[in-house]
């Protein structure tokens, strides 16, 4: 659904994007991770047809962003990171204006607005002036506007920035339901935990270059071969490595520093193994049978912070 090949953009002498290549299949929720200034916004603005790439190609739904921007705009919904919003009109007037501006026929307009309002749950806000809405409510209104023309691709630039925890959870749920509706979503964030539960695939961007991209598991396997889990026991921690050593698929068992646990005779370990989740269940069964007072097993599957640090060279 989204294809970028050798995407490059320069602002004067500064290269904001340098040969970025990635693909997002239809129905995927793709998270763009990177620190501020990595090139996330530039990529999204190119895909939204607001910036022309200096070199390379970008296609959305098979349409080249430079060849037919109007065609791309018809299938894309774009929500910017620091979007202003018309202050002196009500939320209902705001949506009506954009429904009209998007070229939605008059008889279909009411239905389009109702659908977007229902999805974003802003029915109670419609009569309020936009200037009176909270940050989270504005974000929902912006998302409702983005959804008015029922785009098949959503480009969301830092959608959860500056939101309080409750608004963030609500937004996550909303994006999850949009994902279930089959929409292709590309969202960016520099807050990694924000993306962990929402994305099926990720791209890690740093200083304009794409470090890696693909499904989270695949990225993890490529960057840190094998799976990892943290195991916590309250008794006889010295027996954990010997208990696990019996399994040939276990690659390593490393004890982690935890002063409080150590003081109480317990211990925490990072276990790395080859194979699927069933293998982890065998390990858990063995540890439980060894009577080590096993209290926690935490699979590392979606630890994006670790992945990011590892990919960008800052990992332990």
């Amino acid at each position: 659904m989204i294809e970028c090949e050798g995407l490059t953009h320069t602002f004067g002498a500064r290269t904001a994007l340098d040969g970025v290549t990635f693909t997002v299949p239809k129905g995927e929720v793709f998270g763009f991770i990177g620190p501020n200034g990595a090139g996330k916004t530039t990529t999204i603005r190119i895909l939204a047809t607001l910036l022309a790439p200096t070199a390379g190609t970008a296609r959305v739904g098979g349409i080249d962003v430079r060849e037919d921007p109007e065609g791309v705009r018809r299938i894309v919904g774009y929500m910017p990171d620091t979007a202003g919003i018309y202050e002196r009109i009500t939320a209902a007037e705001y949506l009506d204006f954009f429904a009209s501006a998007m070229g939605i026929a008059r008889d279909a307009r009411r239905g389009a607005i109702d659908r977007a309002v229902e999805l974003t749950e802003i029915g109670a806000l419609l009569d309020r002036e936009v200037s009176a809405l909270s940050k989270g409510q504005r974000q929902r209104l912006l998302l409702a506007r983005t959804l008015l023309h029922d785009p098949s691709v959503l480009l969301l630039d830092e959608p959860a920035s500056d939101l309080d925890p409750r608004a963030r959870i609500e937004l996550r749920q909303l994006l999850a339901s949009l994902g279930r509706m089959g929409k292709t979503i590309l969202l960016s964030s520099h807050i990694l935990t924000e993306l962990a539960d929402m994305c099926s695939s990720i791209g890690i961007l740093e200083r304009g270059r794409l470090v890696t991209a693909g499904p989270i598991d695949a990225v993890q396997s490529a960057l840190r071969p094998g799976r990892r889990a943290r195991v916590t026991v309250l008794r006889d921690p010295a027996r954990v490595p010997e208990t696990l050593a019996r399994f040939t698929f276990v690659k390593s068992t490393a004890r982690l520093d935890d002063a409080e646990l150590d003081a109480h005779g317990g211990g925490r370990f990072e276990v790395s193994w080859e194979g699927d989740a069933w293998r982890l269940s065998e390990l858990v069964a063995a540890l439980a049978a060894a009577d080590l007072a096993l209290i926690a097993v935490e699979p590392e599957r979606r630890d994006l912070e670790r992945l990011f640090l590892h990919a960008t060279g800052g990992a332990p």
Binding site: T49, L50, R73, R74, A83, G84, F98, A101, G103, R145
Partner: peptide
């Protein structure tokens, strides 16, 4: 003012 507030982007992407 729309350009400064970045509301112009939404107008640019509309069908207007």
């Amino acid at each position: 003012q729309e350009r400064e507030a970045r509301t112009l982007d939404a107008l640019t992407l509309s069908a207007l």
